[in-house]
């Protein structure tokens, strides 16, 4: 039925992941007090992406899924980013 034995994550590892996520949340909130100018959006989005990657990798078990599943997740995000960029080819140069 199952092709491979499912990986069982320990409670402790989940707690660790949560700690990392809370830490990153703290960082984003603190960042609002510092004026980074044009980089504010970039840094904020970067932190959010790191958080998203952590959730995907551990909470959503991507680390233990097949390589194919990982690739389609990456591909889907990449496709969205590409669509965003192509749309902005219009808005930036108008």
């Amino acid at each position: 039925m199952d092709e491979h034995k499912p990986h069982i994550s320990s409670y402790l590892s989940h707690a660790r992941v949560l700690t990392a996520l809370l830490f990153l949340t703290l960082i984003t909130v603190l960042l609002t007090w510092i004026d980074l100018g044009v980089f504010t959006i970039a840094v904020t989005l970067l932190v959010a992406s790191v958080k998203a990657t952590i959730v995907l990798t551990w909470f959503m078990h991507l680390k233990f899924e097949s390589a194919f599943t990982r690739w389609i997740v990456i591909g889907t995000f990449a496709l969205f980013v590409l669509i965003l960029i192509v749309t902005f080819v219009d808005y930036f140069f108008r």
Binding site: L82, I83, V86, V89, D90, F92, R94
Partner: peptide
Amino acid sequence: GYFVWGHHMFTTGISYWSRWF
């Protein structure tokens, strides 16, 4: 096919580079 949608909009005033692309 994902990245050709703008050819429906050539006359709407989208940017030059966008039309080119």
